[in-house]
């Protein structure tokens, strides 16, 4: 059993180290016919990141702040849409079809529009992230509120529960796992959306701007270290949501 556990950790980490070593010693460069200045090696990226970590950290804070504010606003609006659509089933259903369509709209197309509407980089970011997070939350929460076990609704009706009661005691708790699924989806897409909006925005700070600016200056190692920082931020926020989820919905089957 113990051996099993060790192997479970050993294989992925061993593979990761082997991958980094192949990269470090230029095997990938030979295979793909690349020059070191096109694809910097890991040690160079690590050193660059270490030397510029203050800059990278402040840029990350800007991007993450925008992503989180947009995430909160967008998820809240999305949840409200789901609630309204549940209260008015017939008309709400049509609204949900449109939200689904909105979900398929490419983020990139949104960021120039937000550039026209808002003048500062922060508001552009928040605008793009809000729209992106809205759709996923609305769809998941709506699904959670309406995908009830058939008998549970009958039980509520048999005890003459009001619609408000049904909503509070049945639909809301039932939607919680789906809400957290949406939050997990949103945390990743919020950071992506924030970075992409920075590629095209007028902002002069943030991870996306940093990546673009450093590539323009042919500072490839710096661009890569921004990717590393963005990934660390993404994983941290994701784990945070997972921890909260574990606490809030202890009763759900997926947590047992």
């Amino acid at each position: 059993m113990k051996r099993e556990k060790i192997m479970r950790v050993f294989w992925p980490i061993g593979f990761g180290i082997a991958f980094l070593l192949l990269w470090e010693f230029g095997i990938f460069h030979d295979l793909l016919n690349l020059k070191p200045f096109q694809l910097p090696i890991p040690s160079e990226i690590a050193i660059t990141l270490f030397e510029n970590y203050e800059q990278a950290f402040s840029d990350m804070l800007i991007t993450v702040t925008g992503a989180l504010i947009g995430l909160v606003i967008g998820s809240f609006i999305g949840f409200c849409i789901a609630v309204v659509a549940t209260i008015f089933p017939k008309w709400g259903f049509g609204g949900m079809i449109l939200v689904t369509a909105l979900n398929a709209v490419p983020i990139v197309a949104l960021s120039p529009i937000m550039n026209l509407w808002f003048t500062t980089g922060m508001f552009q970011k928040i605008g793009v992230v809000t729209v992106v997070c809205m759709a996923a939350m609305a769809i998941n929460a709506y699904y959670g509120m309406n995908d009830l076990k058939p008998f549970s609704l009958d039980l509520m009706h048999s005890s003459a529960a009001s619609r408000w009661h049904i909503f509070k005691k049945l639909r809301l708790p039932n939607s919680l796992p789906n809400v957290f699924t949406a939050l997990r989806i949103n945390i990743a897409s919020a950071i992506i959306a924030a970075i992409i909006s920075e590629y095209f925005a007028t902002s002069t700070a943030g991870l996306g701007f940093g990546i673009k600016d450093n590539l323009r200056k042919a500072e490839m190692a710096m661009g890569w270290s921004y990717i590393v920082v963005a990934s660390i931020a993404g994983v941290t926020l994701y784990l945070f949501i997972v921890l909260v989820e574990r606490d809030v919905i202890k009763w759900h089957a997926s947590q047992r």
Binding site: M7, R8, W11, P12, F15, G16, L34, Q38, L39, I187, A188, I191, I192, I195, I196, Y199, L207, G208, I211, K212, L215, M220, G223, W224, Y226, I227, A230, S231, G234, V235, L237, Y238, L239
Partner: peptide, 29 residues
């Protein structure tokens, strides 16, 4: 099983990181 043990953690992590951020770098390469 070994392939799954190697690849699965990376697949999960990949859902958490902003993959599209790599686009300009890949374009540059």
């Amino acid at each position: 099983k070994i392939a799954e043990k190697i690849a699965f953690p990376y697949l999960i992590v990949s859902q958490m990181i902003p993959v599209l951020g790599l686009a300009p770098i890949i374009f540059n390469i």
